[in-house]
Nucleic acid binder design. Sequence first.
DNA 1: CGGATTCATGCAAACGATTACAGTGTATCC
DNA 2: GGATACACTGTAATCGTTTGCATGAATCCG
Lengths: 331, 331
Amino acid sequence: MASIRDVAEQCGVSTATVSRALAGKQHVREEVRKQVLEAAQRLDYRPNRAARNLRSNQSSNIGLVVSDIQNPFFTSICRAVEDAALKAGFAVFLCNTDEDPEKEALYLRHLADENVAGVIIAPTGRRTRDFQMLNGLAMPLVVIDRPIGKELADTVVIDNAEAAFDLTEHLISHGRRRIACVFGANSSTGQERRKGFQLALQKNGLTERRELVHSVPPREEEGYRAVCQMLALPDAPDAVLTSNGLLALGAYRALMESGKKCPEEVSFATFDEAAWTSLVKPSVTVLEQPTYEIGATAAGLLLMRIEDPKRSIRHVELKHKLLIRHSCGCA
Amino acid sequence: MASIRDVAEQCGVSTATVSRALAGKQHVREEVRKQVLEAAQRLDYRPNRAARNLRSNQSSNIGLVVSDIQNPFFTSICRAVEDAALKAGFAVFLCNTDEDPEKEALYLRHLADENVAGVIIAPTGRRTRDFQMLNGLAMPLVVIDRPIGKELADTVVIDNAEAAFDLTEHLISHGRRRIACVFGANSSTGQERRKGFQLALQKNGLTERRELVHSVPPREEEGYRAVCQMLALPDAPDAVLTSNGLLALGAYRALMESGKKCPEEVSFATFDEAAWTSLVKPSVTVLEQPTYEIGATAAGLLLMRIEDPKRSIRHVELKHKLLIRHSCGCA
DNA sequence: CGGATTCATGCAAACGATTACAGTGTATCC
DNA sequence: GGATACACTGTAATCGTTTGCATGAATCCG
């Protein structure tokens, strides 16, 4: 591999000049710059990243920490972040925490060790302590999906309470009164959505039933199990609502297998758009989050913060969208 | 951040000794080693990766290059690779090529620049030229899914021709004779599956109909369009087969919208298991690839090659599985 | 015209680890 | 008892950049 010395020798200048020329800095004669550029091209010179990183403490990588790479919600965000990063000349470290705070801490350390330029993270837990650690790392940071530590970092979120409120009210507007819910446990989003749900009940004069509200880890089986259980209740629910795409899969499956007519006997609605929701019968009414936009916005914020670490902290709240289909009883 | 010098000073030894102690090398008194370990712990010393990388030309990162991070097939592989890498103390650079050879080349360069320990790649094109470039980079390499350059790198694949053969024969066994196919274009897998399909036809005395075989970019819309077109043919097909999960989504949608009865009038079967295939009615008969295993195997091979770059090249072929459900006409 | 400023460049010191080599001390062998 | 081997440790070179400082030349201004 050609090094900066090779280029320098080839041009009869010092490495300092080459470095300056390549970095587009001032104080390099135009003629010399051209020569350097040519030589670099000719020798297929590629700067040694490790050396650069060592010397100047900055890399052109960013970290993306999510809790489940197989969840289309995150995949879409990931896609957006990647697109934006690539355009800005960054590459992305993808880290999968599996909702495990230990794994999360491990990865954050690794990212810090790698000297990444910044990190976009959907934090696993509510453990603000760990988060402080993260903040102690003092690298540019954007928090998505689960707004922890608002004082400390840029965030991109949706109004989860409002979204859940809208979704719930939609079901209520169809005359549903005994709504079974499955929320994701361990994440602030789950909590907030639950609050929005409760608010909608309240506003419509309904009371929450404990046996109809579950908080479980966000996995298909858990959604399945919870819904099976609730559908078997003596005073069975007339609607099912889930707070994320993975739970929705299980819930829908449970609903189908129960033999109950949907939407006639039991309505269904969920957070998170996915490929299958419009494919099944009845098609599923969905509260869609602007996933790609979340990722793109987060990447944008991060790049700007990398540019200027002192800029004031921003919080972006994006709008959700209700995709009305057939599982709720709409024509 | 504490550096190796801080640890050395704290212990009253040289940096060389610290380095040796931490690396677990010989010729360090047990007592000293213990002291060093303690001091490192106390100071929360974390080796500077850039420095290490610069000096010794090895990083503890590996690259994973896939063509579509939103395709569950790759997501599952990604997951497996991540799991395995983490266990071995590596982190993963995820790169999304979007089936674009330019982007692929770009990323490979970046990975090489980053001095990654190795790369797992599902190559986009058939362009062996680019591939040679890649090989010229001379880093440990494992090719998955699309076996290009068998002489040059470890590979993990399934027998695509056989898989397609099996899937096709299954349809034929249900009396299907005019099978419409949509294959992924630009990938060797698509080609091979097509061959397997043709072989199955041949063996059963059927002739291929040009108008019933499409090769299109692997995207939902493309699958949709192709199947719409074929279903509208005067001599309409009595079965539809798609060669990957994204095409399947579009194809199934087209099939549903066409109003034709499935499986009575038109059977359906596809490659790639996904969450929705068992959820829809009729549920979809699928040729399942062992995705997680592919990723895990690839990661294993890569780690071993990193360990010993000279070991002989291996090719692993994993077994596919036919998941018989209802869209093909089985009870 | 001379001092001040600006420009173009080179020299050499970092950055923080690893490691070849050399040096010291202790044990072993004949 | 001297030679030899081996274990432990330190010194300093090295990886390939970036960048502060020094230098000399050109330009400017009063």
